[in-house]
Design a protein around this nucleic acid. Structure first.
Lengths: 152, 152
DNA sequence: TTTTCATGTAACTTGTTTAGTTACAAGATG
DNA sequence: CATCTTGTAACTAAACAAGTTACATGAAAA
């Protein structure tokens, strides 16, 4: 199952907590994955201007805009709007009228579900996710993000 | 992409139009696929009692209940409730509080979308799909289902 | 200027899932 | 008993995300 959105949000919040630029290496360790995966995930966000990257000493990744100004819908689009719905039609543009009727019914429902998701995404900012994270940290009694992960 | 629901609905409506039992062979031709695919698709529906199958001469597939009594939700469940949403979490039960916050936000949205789909499915019967199909047939001026497919 | 660090990106491998295919056993009808 | 049809397992093919490896590019430090 596609976990790119989940992954990239995780990365972004870690970045936001990080003092100064965070390298792909650092982020990859926090996510138990590979630096190249981080770079691949972030490519679209960089192009859209949500994050910045720099090469060489002291380089790495930084937020380029405030968390308040970035919604989940922005992040989702920056990933290339990957498929949300797992069920599709057997064929688009079928000649068979039976299949047309089936497609019409399913399309209507799936479009509504997709619209619902995008609506909600557009109403959640990275800042609100960050607030939720800090609330969880208080609830647990952790003082730093470093206490909060052991590889995951 | 998973097109089993689309496929099985297509099969069911063809079956409903068919005089007497329809063989897997016949249905497979109408769907441009293989008889074994039809049998595999229908296995769950047979177990749930929505369709009947018979071996030997004059055998094949028939509806076991009126179209009016079968909803898309019934069919969906008979398929084993395959995944509706294509995006998931990187890991369930993460230790990382960042990931917990991300998961919570995504889960909430995805659950809502899934509930919306299932709600709609439960309100659409095979009979209503069939009515839509017949309306399309009238609109096109076809007199028989046989005019409506050339392999699809 | 040379070394080191870090990103950018392509290519390949792996794992998972659906669809399609083949083959054949089991059972029902003529 | 011959034929038809389902039931099911096993295999292949195609698609796709994720992980991995490798190396070119470019920036900072020594």
């Amino acid at each position: 199952m596609d976990s790119r959105l989940s992954g990239v949000l995780h990365v972004l919040l870690h970045m936001a907590e990080h003092e100064g630029p965070a390298t792909s290496e650092t982020l990859a360790r926090a996510m138990s994955t590979n630096p190249a995966v981080i770079r691949r995930l972030m490519a679209g966000l960089r192009e859209e201007g949500y994050v910045r990257s720099a090469k060489g000493h002291g380089g790495g990744w930084e937020m380029a805009r405030p968390l308040e100004e970035i919604t989940l819908a922005d992040v989702y689009r920056a990933l290339g709007s990957p498929t949300l719905i797992a069920m599709g039609n057997r064929s688009e543009q079928p000649q068979c009228l039976v299949e047309q009727a089936v497609n019409a019914a399913l399309d209507e429902t799936m479009s509504a579900a997709e619209a619902l998701v995008l609506d909600r995404f557009s109403e959640v900012t990275l800042a609100s996710l960050s607030r939720d994270f800090h609330a969880r940290m208080l609830a647990r009694g952790s003082l730093s993000i470093k206490d909060t992960h052991n590889g995951s």
